[in-house]
Amino acid sequence: MNRQMSDLEQQLIDYYNNKLNEEQRRKIESWINASEENRQTARRIFSFMLAIEVQRMHKKTNTEEALAKTKNKIKNKRRTIWLRWTQRSAAALLILLTVFMLWRHPQSNDQDTTAEIIEVQTVSGMTIRLTLPDSTYVCLNSESTLKYPSRFVKGTRSVYLSGEAYFEVAKDPNRRFIVHTPQQTAVEVYGTHFNVEAYPNAPLITATLTEGSIKFRYQEGTEVKYMPLNPGQKAIYNTATQEVSRHPTSGISELAWTEGKIIFDNTPLQEALHMLSKRFGTDFIVTNPDLCNNRFTGSFSTEQIEKILKHFEISSEIHWRYLNKKDASQKKKTIEIY
């Protein structure tokens, strides 16, 4: 019995690593869908695999950081983005990370209906690195959700994002890669590097392109429109007015989070607070609207939020303080800017 279970677990591992042939894959999928107990076993194996990957990347990240220090932080134009988080303990992260396997989830016509839909969520103040079945690299930011099939088989490659993520899409001229986002928006590409921020309740949705080309798809009334972007451009979509604008950008500030940094580049107060909120899982209340005219420049990596806000105080007339929680159910800290 133990031997049979061991063989089965190995087959599940090979299945998620796309190492099975077509006949083996179908047998495993039939077994998975045969009962809820089987589905739970498959979920357990997938969660275990992801946990191992988190620990492996944690060790590799620390090694790379140590090497970088001994080499006096030699600059390299190649961007290597590792798993980043505010809690350095891998064990703590494994508790925070939530992974859902949704079996036989309704899917669009361009995906194989037998593929599972994998849903990955990050909690406040946490980011994670993923590689999709087509070798597309994804860095998922704090409080974000990404849904994608266990494999891309037909037509387009579609994923669903709620939150923020950086994509390095594997090139495939025959299949578009589409990132579906809230408010009937999407980003369409064939192979390129870009960042998308699309939190469900945020007033703005942004797409920043660093390499290749993309089309930002949006809704204007009942009409579907497209805005093409070239490297060094950012699309900003106002969800209330359904208006979209295009802006030049270096991408440094927008992508800093993927390297565990916060970079302000003449950044308005409200945008700066939004960046801090994602990084530290903190809510902000601005009680003096005049302060929103302030802009900030600076780079931070390992600094705590108090030190960054001290920078605000020194460079402007801004003051801040923690507010006592009125509701015990509130999980986030609240800071007043006055």
Score class of each variant (00 low, 15 high):
Asp14Phe: 05
Tyr15His: 10
Gln24Tyr: 02
Arg26Met: 07
Ser30His: 07
Ile32Val: 12
Ile32Phe: 06
Asn38His: 14
Ala42Pro: 02
Arg43Leu: 13
Arg43Glu: 15
Arg44Trp: 02
Met49Thr: 05
Leu50Arg: 12
Leu50Lys: 11
Arg56Met: 08
Lys59Arg: 13
Lys71Asn: 12
Lys73Leu: 15
Ile81Lys: 04
Ile81Val: 14
Trp82Tyr: 15
Trp85Leu: 10
Leu94Trp: 04
Leu94Tyr: 03
Leu97Gly: 00
Leu97Ser: 00
His105Ile: 13
Ser108Thr: 14
Thr131Gly: 00
Asp134Arg: 02
Thr136Gly: 01
Thr136Ala: 01
Ser144Pro: 06
Thr156Ile: 08
Thr156Gly: 00
Glu164Cys: 11
Ala165Arg: 02
Phe167Thr: 05
Ala170Met: 09
Val189Ala: 09
Gly191Leu: 07
Thr192Trp: 10
His193Thr: 12
Ala202Gln: 12
Leu204Trp: 13
Ile205Gly: 03
Gly212His: 06
Ser213Asp: 09
Ser213Lys: 14
Lys215Arg: 07
Phe216Ser: 03
Gln219Ser: 11
Glu220Ala: 09
Val224Tyr: 00
Met227Asp: 04
Leu229His: 03
Lys234Leu: 13
Lys234Asn: 07
Ala235His: 02
Ile236Thr: 15
Thr241Lys: 10
Glu243Ala: 11
Thr249Cys: 09
Ser250Cys: 06
Gly251Ala: 06
Glu254Met: 06
Ala256Met: 09
Ala256His: 08
Trp257Arg: 03
Lys261Ser: 13
Phe264Lys: 02
Lys278Cys: 10
Asn294Trp: 10
Gly298Asn: 06
His319Glu: 15
Trp320Cys: 06
Arg321Ile: 07
Tyr322Trp: 13
Lys326Asn: 15
Ile335Pro: 03
Tyr338Pro: 05
